[in-house]
Design a binder for these strands. Structure first.
Length: 549
RNA sequence: GUGCCCGUGGCUUAAUGGACAGAGCGUUGGACUCCGGCUCCAAAGAUUGCGGGUUCGAUUCCCGCCGGGCACUCCA
């Protein structure tokens, strides 16, 4: 909360000091690496050095002189090669604490989104098999980002796009039919490209139970359609059950076949044609992406007459724009990175503005078990399902592990470690801090304290109290940082830091002391504020905060 | 071969171009008569893959190597 005001104060000191010069493009206000540098530090002198043709140290000292006149600051110094280091007054920090207690999580909300419609599309796995841990990472990242967007005032739609139209579904249908026949003792080989997972065997058994030998060695369009829809329904039930077990919900389930049925794929290709990006060659219809700087052109409609994945995807994104979203975010696995420039070229060709669609890629998840990698492939039927993972480690731990690293970082999920409940587990560390807080508040009530009473925060003079207040008052900065960088891991790192600061505080001081009621009330206020912050972050991450463990 | 991502203490990792590269795990040594020790304190541990360049300043940007992952389909 304070860094905003400080930024404004830096700007006004700058313009007062250098009235005829423009402001630097950007400069930071951040927490310095060590307490010795004060509470906040800014690099404004570095970023303005070129504009002012002046030594950063000189600039910093001029700005500092102005800032020093403000009672907001306790101390302003110039350090290093030109940092402006600021120490804010204790009164001000305590005001922030009071604000948190009064307004709760609203104290940290800035309306950046202003109600604009933001669509986040994630998971979007096709119904050909169960969700894997890789989808789990995507589900977690997408959910946390959606929560963040909502927190800062966007109207968010969480959408799941599934391909229920293409050839993969036919392959799935045929694979199921093969399993069905095998169940009936018919010796048919699973085709090379078939889905070999054991899950189809269970479904095949089910069909034998219901339909007997009706489809034995019989394969035509009707049979295909039956197996296809049977398989798709089963897969969807499974996917939805796993997601709900994982506490992830979607607002819209968007089917690819609806794009075809509603003529949107056809419309898209016509519009591309009108704009001069379509030509025919070798019996196929091509997208002239090279006109937009791509190194080659891509097929939109195969010579068989079927649309490609690229075309339907462009049609899908065109539809997103037509549905009136102000902005959309797609979350894709890193294996789709080659697809990014093509879809973007498609949108550009359609005249959709550049900033409309953002794509966040995340690196892969590997699962390590007994010290070695578990290879995962839906087609080969080798995987650890998301549902299994959630059953073993719980939704909270799974979700936290998925978002605790930067999406850019490869994630290696150690199943043995996760299964062993012992864990050097940050989730438990944070939950423990929260449970301790609840325990303290309970203890206070039991000893006759009214925990709703507001304490006199002026009594909070211990250094650990100052640290803790500084930590919790910057939650809004953390949320905005996570938003700017699309980095949910900023939240987990932050909440670990807050939990740490609380544990340190807890170990050193007593909160409930009948011989010093006023001090006790003051400290209980701080404890409650910490609880508000931990709960707010845990809600954004989507994990629970039990009162007892 | 071409393109994208990654390379940071023993391990897992953080750092919109900023200060002495920050955490956690592990290791070693400490701390409970009292609100939950699932906690806390301290120490050791790093030439940020290698070599150049840009900059007042580079883990971050550029170039070249080395190593790993991914993608280069009329699959999705």
């Amino acid at each position: 909360m304070l860094s905003r005001t400080i930024k404004e104060k830096l700007i006004s000191s700058y313009t007062r000091s250098f009235p005829s010069f423009p402001l630097p493009d950007q400069f930071t206000v951040e927490v310095p690496p060590s307490d010795g540098f004060g509470d906040f530090a800014s690099n404004i002198a570095f970023s303005s050095a070129k504009i002012l043709h002046e030594n950063p140290i000189e600039i910093a000292s001029i700005i500092s002189d102005v800032l020093r006149e403000d009672s907001f600051f306790n101390d302003v110094t110039v350090a290093g090669k030109g940092f402006v280091n600021m120490k804010v007054s204790d009164t001000l920090l305590r005001k922030m604490l009071v604000k948190i207690i009064k307004e709760k999580e609203d104290a940290f909300k800035y309306n950046i989104g202003k109600g604009k419609r933001y669509q986040v599309e994630f998971v979007s796995a096709n119904p050909t098999g169960p969700l894997t841990v890789g989808h789990g990472r995507q589900a977690a990242i997408g959910d946390v980002i959606s929560n963040i967007l909502e927190f800062i005032g966007y109207d968010v739609t969480r959408e799941y796009y599934f391909n229920d139209a293409g050839n993969q579904m036919n392959v799935l249908a045929h694979s199921l039919w093969v399993r069905y026949n095998q169940e009936l003792g018919v010796d048919i080989e699973m085709p090379e490209e078939g889905y070999r997972g054991e899950y189809l065997i269970d479904i095949a058994k089910e069909i034998v139970g219901k339909a007997g030998k009706m489809y034995r060695e019989k394969w035509d369009e009707d049979v295909k359609a039956f197996f296809r829809s049977y398989a798709a329904d089963k897969m969807f039930d499974w996917i939805k059950a796993d997601l709900s077990k994982f506490n992830i919900r979607f607002d819209v389930w968007f089917s690819e076949s609806s794009l075809h049925e509603d003529g949107k794929v056809k419309d898209t290709i016509e519009e591309l044609r009108k704009r001069g990006f379509v030509y025919e060659k070798d019996g196929a219809v091509w997208f002239a992406a090279s006109k937009l700087g791509d190194h080659e052109d891509w097929v939109l409609v195969k010579s068989t007459g079927e649309p490609t994945y690229l075309l339907t995807d462009i049609a899908y994104h065109r539809d997103k724009a037509k549905r009136g979203f102000d902005k959309v975010l797609d979350i894709w696995g890193a294996d789709h990175h080659g697809h990014v420039p093509r879809v973007k070229a498609g949108l550009e060709a359609l005249g959709i503005e550049d900033g409309f669609c953002e794509i966040l890629l995340h690196q892969f998840v590997t699962v390590v078990q007994s010290g070695k990698d578990v290879r995962m492939s839906t087609r080969r039927g080798e995987f650890v399902t998301l549902g299994d993972l959630v059953d073993t480690v719980g939704a909270d731990v799974a979700k936290y592990f998925f978002v605790m690293l930067s999406p850019d970082t490869h994630l290696s999920f150690d199943l043995d470690l996760a299964r062993s409940r012992s864990m050097d587990n940050p989730v438990f560390y944070i939950q423990y801090a929260h449970a301790r807080i609840c325990s303290v508040l309970r203890h206070a009530e039991e000893n006759g304290f009214d925990t709703n009473r507001e304490g006199d925060v002026r009594l909070l003079i211990a250094p650990e109290e100052r640290t803790l207040i500084k930590d919790i008052e910057r939650l809004d900065d953390v949320v905005l940082d996570a938003y700017d960088t699309l980095g949910p891991h900023k939240l987990t790192r932050y909440v670990e830091e807050v939990a740490k600061a609380f544990h340190v505080y807890y170990t050193k001081y007593r909160f409930v002391d009948k011989s010093n009621l006023e001090l006790s009330y003051a400290r209980l206020s701080l404890v409650k504020a910490v609880q508000i912050v931990i709960k707010t972050v845990s809600r954004l991450i989507g994990i629970s905060m039990p009162e007892n463990m």
